[in-house]
Amino acid sequence: MFPFCFEWIWDMSHIVFMGGLWFALIIIGLGMTYCIGRTFYDTYIFKGKDGHN
């Protein structure tokens, strides 16, 4: 899973497969981070009445 696991080899299949996986994980992670971060901002800093409801 990580480059320091001994079964890790820097070959095409690892790059493609793990690349895809980490790509997906990063998108999910960043997306959630954005949502939570934005929510914190909206709720505790901006404190504005939600303008969309």
Partner: peptide
């Protein structure tokens, strides 16, 4: 609860990204 309300809203707004993933 405002936090959850906002969270729901924010998640909705980028749902297409998650859906695509």
């Amino acid at each position: 609860i405002p936090f959850f309300h906002n969270l729901g809203h924010n998640m909705h707004s980028i749902m297409a990204v998650f859906a695509a993933t």
